[in-house]
Design a protein around this nucleic acid. Structure first.
Length: 132
DNA sequence: GCCAACGTTGGC
DNA sequence: GCCAACGTTGGC
């Protein structure tokens, strides 16, 4: 199973919105690199839900429930379906940056990328940080 | 095809 | 509010 990270500004779509909805179409992504990542997602893959801008942090885990299909608003782009798995004790961007083992994370390397891969060892370390 | 100008994202 | 990173647009 592959691991991912999905960014969202809480003012546009928050973790609580995802929980309330029980699942959502992850659409509106308009970046070529992010599109490559969306297309690589398989049903059952898991993704960190990252809250950007306001108190940036990883705040939950979501699951991909349908692979990429053309975005309803513009077929040149794609969307996937996601649903919430569980909330996490927030792991702040600050704590991610302060952990040397996470220095290679795509989140840090390309800070504007809204759909990014996460390595298995990074995933497990962040889960451990949330549980600490 | 190059690159300057401009717009957007997102951390601080 | 500022600014760095980076993507897009458009003149040449």
């Amino acid at each position: 199973m592959a691991r991912w990270l999905l960014k969202s500004e809480p003012t546009s779509y928050s973790w609580d919105d995802l929980v309330r909805d029980g699942g959502t179409e992850w659409d509106g992504v308009r970046n070529p690199t992010a599109r490559i990542n969306l297309r690589a997602m398989k049903t059952g893959d898991e993704a960190f839900f990252y809250r950007s801008v306001q108190e940036p942090a990883i705040v939950g885990i979501a699951r991909i429930t349908r692979e990429a299909q053309p975005d309803a608003k513009d077929p040149n782009w794609v969307s996937v379906r996601v649903e919430p798995v569980r909330e996490l004790t927030p792991v702040s961007l600050k704590s991610i940056k302060s952990e040397p083992k996470l220095a290679a994370m795509e989140l840090l390397r390309q800070s504007r990328l809204s759909v990014a891969p996460v390595r298995e060892e990074e995933w497990e370390l962040i889960i451990a940080m949330a549980n600490a």
